[in-house]
Design a binder for these strands. Structure first.
Lengths: 260, 260
DNA sequence: GCGTAAGGTG
DNA sequence: CACCTTACGC
């Protein structure tokens, strides 16, 4: 069983890339974030023609949007709404007995101060809501949580922990809240199981930073967490950074988890 | 000597096409209209790398803009300003003893009434100014006038003379003024020398009209006129309609004049 | 830098 | 339909 997660930065502008990815890696499940499209405009047929006819989607105009694209029908599909703003930031689906939660955590704006910056306040509230949900035991077994969590927790998840210490995505308050979410769900960071620290791992490189291979100013904002019962089934995790070097790339790369 | 004219509809959005064109047809001179870029943002290096290091350009933000791109240095370069509105609608350059005038005549808006429509009034004034300039004898010898003149004069220059009789670009007042410009300059329509009537000739197909090959609702808005002394040197004129069928095309096609 | 959207021009 | 600009989010 192969499960991928990718912040695609507009699913309609990335059809060339996502077609390459599905043909070359053929995951059973593809979780997308930032689809940036309303449900009735989602390119359903495009994915169908690539063999992914089962699509759990939830989007809105312009911003956000999550989707779980699958070869086979889900046993179950749903989504969470944490607040009025919502933003289509979660979908869930059970495939082959495994429940997959696909999250897109708010980016949080520029200023890491919830008093001065409503977007940062929203990010922290969203993490609290995630924690409460995970604490309720929904993810205790046969569960996977993936997505763009917009936080790079470790010093080995950013190109410079010092220079990013006060930059949104790597602040102490965010890192603590992300860890609280993970612990509330009793989940295991599958990426680090396969690639333990001190390996430097990134999943995102800003469009604004040129020459991403040379300067390599990345951050690991995208994550795959699994419930403890699945840890033994982890066969491999890949971070496909070559997709950042393609024509018209997303600023995020796909992560792929293989389970036995 | 090979001279091309092309309304490119944004030179920055058309680099793929113009590179193909220069490689495949290798004109000595390329006259562009609707470059839509200020001079300091013109892609000078792009043309240099294709072997066109000599660039007589005059543009503005967003609208209009003309350019003469050449392999060799001009002996002379200049431009005309007819009014305060201007719009970067003319450049001229002398290459190999031939003076090339590159015009972009105002489109003229929707309503063919100078009372009701300032844009149409501007178009008519521009044609009067062109006529006055041509009447002064500047184009008597060794001269070529090219460009998007935004008028299709003959019944054989439009897909339906009846349906366009009251449509801007094919009204009687415009056609008469265009003919007056040509006669004032003593110029010869080189395209019709090679492809005489009743051949149907188009250089533009609206983006709004689908299936341009099948429905073929075109108009000949782009022209190449030469002074009488050059008529004997006309070897060929091509209207390269395959460029309308390419990826991300301009709505106009290139015209190419070959002189011996 | 690269997505989205709206409003204007051709 | 496809370009431009402005404004916005990431």
């Amino acid at each position: 069983m192969k499960i991928a997660s990718w912040n695609i930065n507009s699913v309609r502008s990335r059809q060339h890339l996502v077609a390459d990815f599905l043909r070359d890696h053929a995951p059973d499940i593809l979780c997308l974030q930032e689809t940036k499209v309303e449900d009735d405009k989602f390119p359903r047929q495009f994915f169908e023609e690539l063999g992914y006819g089962h699509q759990t989607i939830r989007g809105q105009k312009s911003y956000n949007g999550t989707a779980i694209i699958a070869k086979n029908a889900p046993e179950f599909a749903d989504h969470l709404v944490f607040d009025e703003q919502d933003g289509a930031r979660h979908v869930a689906a059970r495939h082959d007995g495994v429940t997959i939660h696909n999250f897109y955590v708010p980016a949080g704006g520029d200023i890491p101060d919830p008093q001065a910056n409503d977007k940062f306040a929203h990010k922290l509230r969203f993490l609290d809501d995630m924690q409460a949900y995970c604490a309720s035991g929904h993810l205790a077994e046969a569960s996977i949580l993936v997505g763009d969590l917009n936080i790079a927790p470790s010093v080995h998840d950013v190109w410079s922990s010092k220079q990013l210490a006060n930059v949104v995505s790597h602040t102490e308050v965010e890192i603590n809240k992300l860890e609280a979410v993970r612990q509330a769900g009793g989940l295991v960071d599958a990426v680090r199981v396969v690639h333990p620290e001190p390996a430097m791992l990134y999943s995102w490189w800003s469009y604004r930073s040129p020459d991403f291979r040379k300067n390599n100013r990345g951050r690991r904002l995208d994550h795959i967490w699994v419930s403890p019962d699945l840890v033994g089934r982890i066969r491999h995790v890949s971070l496909l950074d070559d997709y950042r070097a393609r024509e018209k790339p997303s600023d995020h790369i796909p992560l792929v988890l293989e389970l036995t």
